[in-house]
Nucleic acid binder design. Structure first.
Lengths: 201, 201
DNA sequence: TTGTTATTTGTCAAAATTGAAAATTAACGG
DNA sequence: CCGTTAATTTTCAATTTTGACAAATAACAA
């Protein structure tokens, strides 16, 4: 019997180091040398496990999308039990949330360079669409009478506040901004609870 | 007398090409060769006008920040005459707005790599702060009785929707998203007009 | 025309990044 | 111990990117 395979484990470790470097230096700034140093391995191992550069980018893309979708799935399950907008924003904007900004930063870095790759672009866009769907569904449960079009708009607004939070993290923004973004999301969600129908009541 | 200087003009042209490349390829992906091709000049001219790579990045940073601040100033003047939240969002989310996404994309690309440079980070953060101040002031004029803390929160939310619009542009998102983000901003601003005083749970 | 200055181009060397293969080492079962 | 397979390291070539300087060209005034 051969030596046991570390293919999956090593691939994960390297992809995580790749993710870190992309979040910190951008996609083109994440050189193989930096990734290898971050992962604590020799450079040729990157090629061994993930292939050449193009294949590495593709692997990172699927890794980011999969991770994002996984979090979205968990969020969907968590949001199943909530009943108010306050609970929703508490969950999304919790300070101790396991949500590390690297994921979104890599997502954005990939999105600017994925203009030419249709499949990468589709996967990225779809992952965001799923996130919006989960938010919309939760909002619909909170305010069943609300106009669906308004629900989608509110989901977009909450999503953008949420995304902005991670997007700004490299700049170490003032601490109050987190609370302001959270409150914006809360106010937005509140518009569904208080004025349920579009033209009505 | 010497030959007339094209220093300012050429520098602007090159910086604009630099901006384009950074928006499309990221900061590290904007190689001098790509910039030169985009600007329609030979590569050594970049060095002649903007200096070496570090100096080029610094020049781009000030260019982006200055351009952003200029737009913020114009926006401030334009918003001076408005009286409703609808006018504000119409101005910000107009499709034909001269606002090209390159500026924000470069702003974000710089922000992720500016973690180590305190002065770059400060300038970027300050430019965003000014934008938020302008939004807050306009919202305050629309709803003078509103709680200042809520006004800031609403400004953050509107800003994040606005920023997200440009941030997603490389992915060519569905056309409806623009309207949804605009409506989110409108709903958010509406919370100030309709429920003037605090309370916000 | 000539001198002066700025622009523009040409060219080379150094450094960094990547691609790719061969060679070595380590773990496991028999 | 031996054979097998995977992990790891070593090594070199090719490409890309940048830094830097010298030379050439163009515009303007006297």
């Amino acid at each position: 019997m051969p030596r046991p395979s570390l293919q999956d484990q090593r691939s994960e470790e390297i992809l995580d180091a790749y993710l870190t470097c992309v979040a910190r230096f951008g996609l083109e700034g994440a050189t193989q040398e930096r990734i290898a140093a971050e992962a604590g391995v020799k450079r040729p191992l990157l090629r061994h496990y993930l292939g050449n550069r193009d294949q590495m980018v593709a692997a990172l893309n699927t890794h980011v999308v999969d991770s994002f979708n996984l979090l979205t799935g968990r969020l969907d399950a968590t949001l199943a039990g909530i009943t108010s907008a306050a609970e929703l924003t508490d969950l999304l904007f919790a300070e101790d949330a396991g949500n590390d900004p690297r994921l979104l930063l890599a997502w954005q870095a990939l999105s600017v360079s994925a203009a030419g790759q249709p499949e990468m672009r589709a996967a990225l866009l779809d992952s965001l669409q799923q996130f919006l769907d989960v938010l919309s569904a939760a909002l619909h449960r909170i305010a069943p009478a609300a106009d669906p079009a308004r629900v989608r708009a509110v989901a977009q607004g909450i999503s953008s506040s949420f995304v902005t939070l991670d997007s700004l993290s490299p700049l170490n923004p003032p601490a109050g901004w987190r609370q302001e973004l959270k409150q914006a999301a809360l106010l937005l969600a509140g518009t569904l609870e208080h004025s349920p129908r579009a033209g009505g009541s």
